[in-house]
């Protein structure tokens, strides 16, 4: 397969970035440090299908117990098909869901 000069640049960049990313993740204390409710706003979306319990605890109204229930729900029932599915988890009422829905995504 013949690559143009630009395509070769893209390939080299991606490979170099992957290597750099692995080195940073393995050898440094790098963390994404996701935070909710930043005072100056900006979109903060936690994935309810992939976030760990610790991340889910950052959502308003979600404590350690509810966070564990969400993780358990995923293990038993598979991924959520839409964000409304979160209401199926025990402890998440409609009122609670309305408060945190702006911070979540699939």
């Amino acid at each position: 397969m013949h690559f143009t000069k630009e395509e070769k640049s893209i390939l080299i960049t991606i490979l170099a970035a992957a290597l750099l990313g692995i080195i940073i993740n393995v050898f440094t204390a790098y963390k994404t440090g996701l935070k909710v409710n930043k005072p100056d706003g900006g979109p903060v979306l936690i994935s309810i299908n992939s976030a760990a319990a610790e991340e889910l605890e950052e959502l308003p109204g979600i404590g350690a117990v509810t966070a564990q229930r969400i993780v358990k729900y995923r293990e038993v029932n598979g991924k959520f098909k839409d964000i409304g599915g979160l209401k199926e988890v025990k402890g998440i009422t409609q009122k609670k869901f309305d408060k945190l829905r702006q911070y979540i995504t699939l």
């Binding site: 893209i10 960049t13 991606i14 170099a16 970035a17 992957a18 750099l20 990313g21 692995i22 940073i24 993740n25 790098y30 994404t32 994935s47 992939s50």
Partner: peptide, 27 residues
């Protein structure tokens, strides 16, 4: 931007792999 597009592409299928490109973009 190129690293960002790679991050998006991998993130659609496997979020953890997106984190690798995320770290490179961060640097």
């Amino acid at each position: 931007s190129i690293i960002g597009y790679a991050m998006w592409l991998t993130g659609v299928f496997f979020m953890r792999a997106a984190g690798v490109f995320g770290a490179a973009a961060w640097a």
